[in-house]
Computed example of a mutant assay.
Amino acid sequence: MDCAYFDARRCTSCALMGQPYARQLADKQRHAEDLLAPFDVPEWLPPVASTESNYRNKAKMVVAGTVDEPTIGILDADGHGIDLQACGICSPGHRAAFPPLARFITLARITPYDVTRRTGELKHLIVTESPDGELMVRFVVRSTEPVGRIRKHLPTLLAELPQTRVVTVNVLPEHKAALEGEHEIVLTDADTLPMRLNDVTMHLRPQSFFQTNTEIAAALYAEARDWIRGLAPDSAWDLYSGVGGFALHIADAGGADGPAVTGIETSVEAVASAELSRSDAALSRLRFATGDATAFAIAADAAPDLVIVNPPRRGIGGELSAWLEASDASHVLYSSCNVASLAKDLAAMPSLRPVRARVFDMFPQTTHFEVMVLLERVR
Rank of each mutant, 00 (worst) to 15 (best):
S53V: 13
S53F: 07
S53R: 15
Y55L: 06
N57S: 12
K58N: 04
A59F: 02
K60V: 10
M61T: 11
M61H: 07
V63W: 09
G65A: 10
G65K: 08
G65R: 06
V67P: 03
P70L: 11
I72P: 10
G73Q: 04
I74L: 13
D76W: 00
A77L: 07
H80D: 14
H80E: 14
G81Y: 00
G81L: 02
D83G: 14
Q85K: 13
C87Y: 02
I89P: 11
P92W: 00
R95E: 03
A96Y: 01
A97Y: 02
P99N: 05
P100G: 11
A102P: 06
R103G: 11
R103P: 02
R103E: 15
R103L: 11
F104P: 08
T106R: 13
T106L: 02
L107E: 14
A108V: 10
Y113H: 04
Y113S: 04
T116G: 00
R118G: 02
R118F: 11
E121N: 01
E121R: 01
I126V: 15
I126M: 15
V127S: 14
V127M: 12
T128N: 02
S130H: 03
P131G: 03
L135G: 13
M136Q: 15
F139G: 11
V140C: 02
V140E: 03
R142P: 01
P146H: 05
L154A: 09
